[in-house]
Amino acid sequence: MNQYAATVIATEYPPHLKHKIIFETFANLKPAEAMLLVNDHDPVPLRFQFEAMHAGRFTWDYMEQGPTRFQVKIGKL
């Protein structure tokens, strides 16, 4: 069984669409589901956006931390 309801590989999208796709994917998660974000750099600015927009309603767990690939499990509470 897959532990992720969705996977977003950020490098597949143009820069102006990345965050839009990520937030849309998160919005479509049901409570207790998680998505996997795969990126080529540490998405710290994205985490700050999640904290500003969804404070207390998400989890953020690094599955892989670089140096060239980052994977983050983002869960919906």
Rank of each mutant, 00 (worst) to 15 (best):
Met1His: 10
Asn2Arg: 14
Asn2Pro: 14
Gln3Gly: 10
Tyr4Glu: 05
Tyr4Lys: 08
Tyr4Val: 02
Tyr4Trp: 15
Ala5Ile: 03
Ala6Glu: 15
Thr7Leu: 12
Thr7Val: 15
Val8Ala: 08
Ile9Gly: 01
Ala10Cys: 06
Thr11Trp: 07
Thr11Leu: 11
Tyr13Lys: 04
Pro14Gly: 03
Pro15Trp: 02
Pro15Ile: 13
His16Asp: 12
His16Lys: 10
Leu17Asp: 13
Leu17Lys: 13
Lys18Thr: 12
Lys18Asp: 04
His19Glu: 10
Lys20Val: 07
Lys20Ile: 09
Ile21Ser: 10
Ile22Gln: 08
Ile22Gly: 06
Ile22Tyr: 04
Phe23Val: 01
Phe23Met: 13
Phe23Pro: 02
Phe23Gln: 09
Glu24Ser: 09
Thr25His: 03
Thr25Tyr: 05
Phe26Ser: 03
Phe26Ile: 05
Ala27Trp: 00
Ala27Met: 09
Asn28Ile: 00
Leu29Gly: 10
Leu29Ser: 08
Leu29Trp: 02
Leu29Ala: 12
Leu29Tyr: 00
Leu29His: 03
Lys30Asn: 13
Pro31Tyr: 02
Ala32Ile: 03
Ala32Gln: 15
Ala32Tyr: 13
Glu33Tyr: 08
Glu33Arg: 04
Glu33Pro: 09
Glu33Met: 11
Ala34Ser: 15
Ala34Gln: 14
Met35Asn: 12
Met35Val: 01
Met35Trp: 08
Leu37Gln: 12
Leu37Pro: 09
Val38Gln: 06
Asn39Met: 03
Asp40Pro: 01
His41Phe: 15
Asp42Thr: 00
Asp42Trp: 00
Pro43Leu: 00
Val44Arg: 14
Pro45Ser: 01
Leu46Asn: 00
Leu46Glu: 01
Phe48His: 11
Gln49Arg: 09
Phe50Val: 00
Phe50Pro: 02
Glu51Val: 00
Glu51Thr: 00
Glu51Met: 01
Ala52Lys: 13
Ala52Leu: 04
Met53Asn: 09
Met53Cys: 04
His54Asn: 09
His54Thr: 00
His54Cys: 03
Ala55Met: 03
Ala55Thr: 01
Ala55Tyr: 07
Gly56His: 06
Gly56Gln: 05
Arg57Leu: 07
Arg57Met: 05
Arg57Glu: 15
Phe58His: 11
Phe58Arg: 05
Phe58Cys: 04
Thr59Gln: 11
Thr59Met: 06
Trp60Lys: 07
Trp60Cys: 04
Asp61Tyr: 08
Asp61Lys: 15
Tyr62Arg: 06
Tyr62Ser: 03
Tyr62Lys: 05
Met63Gly: 04
Met63Asn: 12
Glu64Gly: 02
Glu64Tyr: 09
Gln65Trp: 05
Gly66Ser: 07
Gly66Leu: 13
Gly66Phe: 10
Pro67Ser: 08
Pro67Gly: 06
Arg69His: 12
Arg69Ile: 14
Gln71Phe: 06
Gln71Asp: 07
Val72Glu: 14
Val72Phe: 11
Val72Gly: 13
Lys73Thr: 04
Lys73Met: 15
Ile74Tyr: 11
Gly75Cys: 06
Gly75Val: 09
Gly75Ile: 07
Lys76Val: 02
Lys76Tyr: 12
Lys76Phe: 14
Leu77His: 08
Leu77Lys: 07
Leu77Ser: 11
